[in-house]
Design a protein around this nucleic acid. Structure first.
Ligand SMILES: [Zn+2]
Ligand SMILES: [Zn+2]
Ligand SMILES: [Zn+2]
Ligand SMILES: [Zn+2]
Lengths: 136, 136
DNA sequence: GAAGTTATGTGATATTATAACGTCGCGTCA
DNA sequence: TGACGCGACGTTATAATATCACATAACTTC
């Protein structure tokens, strides 16, 4: 679980981190930062959140591998797998906006290609655009 | 050449399109939209350009396959190959900011994986982060 | 050259993200 | 316990990126 992984790493599981992660889990889809800001205080006695609060939480969660940023959407999504921090790949539906995390199993090949070109890879991100099963 | 490809397609090779493409070619590296805006008028008698001018040119050039957007950098780069519109992959150096277009040769595999999951792909983008040969 | 279409110019505004700085909470150690 | 140090948070402001809306200009076709 997220909190455990966080505490094991000696990091604090604070209210904003918890709340942002919770919102992303509930959404089960990519969410924009300003939607998180808007939804942050809905329900309970939580106060409002301003941009730095959300962006700091997102940075932290990304660093922990609990959340991925999808650059082409300017959106953030809870990680779908229980793994250490990893490079994520997504199938992004242009119709409904869903983003399914999947493993294309090409990392070793790509890494080899890159190194053959004199490049030393540290991470990679693959985004496949198209139509999901439901929208096709 | 870019102009030819454009005219063959029945599109106009206008001043903003030409100038923006020229700037990207000269840079030979990813350039941010607002840097294009700033540089647009440098030299000659060209006037100034405002955001819509640059973004429209970038949209057009992307559509023609002459320019790629690199989402994780919010930057744009002239295409390095003479091919019809295609999905581009980049080796992006975190040190010097260079972005080399390369062909990882994994498109068919990824496409098959995606389709096996019920997804119908239309395009894909791969970004590999790391250190280029010069910076390693 | 008049009409229809496409592209551009311009001002305003929307969206996304970060800077700067003070305060709070928590762990540490005298 | 209480002073300190450090990391996280709250708040205001602003930077950086991108789009809307509408008027004007250029090109195409007839
Ligand atoms: Zn993941
Ligand atoms: Zn869909
Ligand atoms: Zn290309
Ligand atoms: Zn480099």
């Amino acid at each position: 679980m997220a909190e455990g992984r966080c505490l094991e790493a000696g990091e604090r599981w604070t209210a904003p981190r918890k709340r942002v992660f919770e919102l992303l889990l509930q959404a089960g889809a990519p969410v924009k930062a300003y939607d998180l800001i808007a939804d942050y205080g809905h329900g309970q006695d939580r106060g409002v959140a301003k941009p730095p609060t959300i962006y700091r939480a997102l940075d932290f969660l990304s660093g922990m591998g609990l959340v991925h940023r999808i650059p082409s959407l300017n959106a953030y999504v809870a990680c779908a797998v229980d793994e250490a921090v990893h490079s994520a790949s997504f199938l992004i539906c242009d119709c409904c906006g869903s983003a399914e995390e999947f493993d294309p199993k090409v990392e070793p090949v790509v890494r080899a290609q890159a190194e053959h070109l004199g490049f030393r890879p540290t991470a990679m991100a693959l985004e496949v655009r198209g139509l999901c099963r439901a929208c096709a």
